[in-house]
């Protein structure tokens, strides 16, 4: 579904991502872990097309994505939940979800979004900027899911969110993944949450993947070793 082949990403002159490569099959989930400032978000920004890759290749379901603007990647089946959620503050909850519906046939918000996240139905007419952090996170995920992605890219969905909502979000993702064959790239520092969802793991340190493996082969203490300072 997603193939990332030795990409390098820069902010101006500073080289942040070094030869990162991984493969992700249909319906699989990879968790990308790592401490603060190690380049996880930068990697995802290049996947969605916010940052160019200086070298290397990214393919989505076989189609090369290099240089494509974000909206084309979305129309090809990628969806993105950014760190910090990035809700449109002056759009209502409903309108926020509608922004994700450029490439689907339905004209109105489908019921299953509200069934998955009931709080969004209650808050339908509120401005996105007036929601709490947890509500905004659910809205950001709803806005991504409504595109009916083949690949969902999540950047620290549990950051700053209370355990009960983390559970809800985890349950929703597991349920939706069960409905089809959506692949997921999950950037996460909260190991327990990642372990619940992921088939494979990669640990990043200073812009490189320093440890990778599957659920079966990877030892938890090794991963945790890279996560502590």
């Amino acid at each position: 579904m997603l193939s990332v082949d030795a990409i390098n990403v820069f902010y101006g002159d500073s080289h942040v991502i070094h030869n990162v490569a991984f493969e992700l099959g249909q319906g699989e989930t990879i968790a990308i872990m790592g401490r603060n400032g190690m380049g996880k978000t930068t990697l995802l920004k290049s996947l969605i097309g916010w940052l160019p890759t200086r070298s290397g290749k990214v393919k989505l379901a076989g189609a090369p994505m290099d240089g494509a603007p974000s909206y084309q990647r979305v129309s090809q089946g990628m969806a993105f939940v950014p760190q910090g959620r990035m809700i449109f503050p002056f759009l209502t909850v409903e309108e926020n979800i509608l922004t994700g519906m450029e490439h689907v046939k339905e004209k109105t918000v489908p019921k299953w979004i509200y069934e998955t996240f009931p709080v969004l139905l209650e808050m339908k007419h509120r401005k996105g900027g007036n929601l709490s952090g947890g509500q905004q996170q659910q809205l950001a995920i709803g806005r991504a899911l409504v595109t009916r992605p083949r690949l969902l890219v999540l950047d620290e969905p549990t950051e700053g969110i209370q355990p009960s909502i983390i559970k809800d979000i985890g349950r929703a993702i597991t349920y939706l993944r069960g409905q089809g064959d959506m692949a997921i790239v999950l950037v996460e520092q909260y190991f327990d949450f990642a372990r619940e969802l992921a088939d494979s793991f990669a640990v990043m340190d200073r812009g490189e993947i320093v440890l990778a493996g599957t659920r079966e082969t990877l030892r938890e203490d090794e991963v945790r070793g890279w996560m502590t300072v």
């Binding site: 969605i48 097309g49 916010w50 974000s70 909206y71 979305v74 950014p82 922004t99 519906m101 595109t147």
Partner: peptide, 8 residues
């Protein structure tokens, strides 16, 4: 940026 990433 986010509008683009939402598909617009």
């Amino acid at each position: 940026a986010m509008a683009g990433a939402a598909g617009i």
